[in-house]
Amino acid sequence: MGPMREDGAGVVWSLVVPLKPLALAKSRLAGAVADRRRPGLALAFAQDTVAAALACPGVADVVVVTDDPLAAGELAAVGARIVADEPARGLNAALAHGARSVRARAPRAAVAALNADLPALRPGELARVLRAAEGPGRWFLADAAGTGTTLLAAGPGVELAPAFGGPSRARHAASGATEIALAGVESVRQDVDTVDDLRAALALGVGPHTARRVGEAGEVPAGARPVAPGAG
Rank of each mutant, 00 (worst) to 15 (best):
A51C: 12
L54M: 05
V64P: 02
R36S: 13
V62T: 04
T49W: 12
A72S: 14
L41A: 05
P57N: 07
G40E: 13
A32V: 00
F45W: 14
T66N: 08
A32E: 02
V62W: 03
A60F: 08
G40D: 15
V59M: 07
V33A: 00
L70Y: 08
D48Q: 05
D48S: 06
A42G: 13
G58D: 11
V33C: 00
V59Q: 02
L54N: 04
D35K: 15
L54F: 11
A44E: 12
V64E: 01
R36K: 13
V62F: 06
T66D: 01
A34F: 02
A32T: 01
P39T: 11
L43V: 15
L43E: 09
V63T: 08
D68F: 05
A53M: 08
G40A: 14
L41R: 00
G73I: 10
R38W: 01
A53P: 00
V33S: 01
P69T: 11
P69W: 07
A44M: 11
D35P: 13
R36L: 13
R37W: 05
R38A: 01
D68W: 10
V64W: 01
A60E: 15
L43K: 02
A51S: 15
V65I: 03
V64D: 01
Q47L: 15
R37F: 04
R37N: 01
A72V: 13
A55H: 13
V33E: 00
L70D: 11
D67W: 02
R36W: 10
L43F: 12
V50A: 12
T49Q: 07
D35H: 14
V65W: 00
Q47A: 13
G73D: 12
R38I: 01
A44G: 10
D35Q: 11
P39D: 12
V65N: 03
A60R: 15
A42C: 12
D61Q: 15
A42Q: 05
A52M: 10
F45H: 15
P39G: 08
V64Y: 04
V33G: 02
P57E: 10
A51M: 07
T49M: 12
A52T: 12
A71M: 05
A60D: 13
A51K: 09
T49P: 12
D35I: 08
V65C: 04
P57D: 12
V63A: 09
R38S: 02
A34T: 08
D67Q: 10
L43A: 06
V33Y: 01
L54D: 07
V63G: 06
D67K: 02
A72C: 08
A51N: 11
L54A: 06
C56I: 00
R38F: 00
P57I: 03
F45C: 10
A32H: 03
A44R: 07
R37T: 00
A52I: 03
C56F: 06
A42W: 06
G73E: 15
A72H: 08
L54H: 06
V65Y: 02
V65M: 05
D61P: 04
D68L: 09
A34H: 12
L43T: 14
L43S: 02
D35M: 07
V63W: 15
A34C: 07
G73M: 08
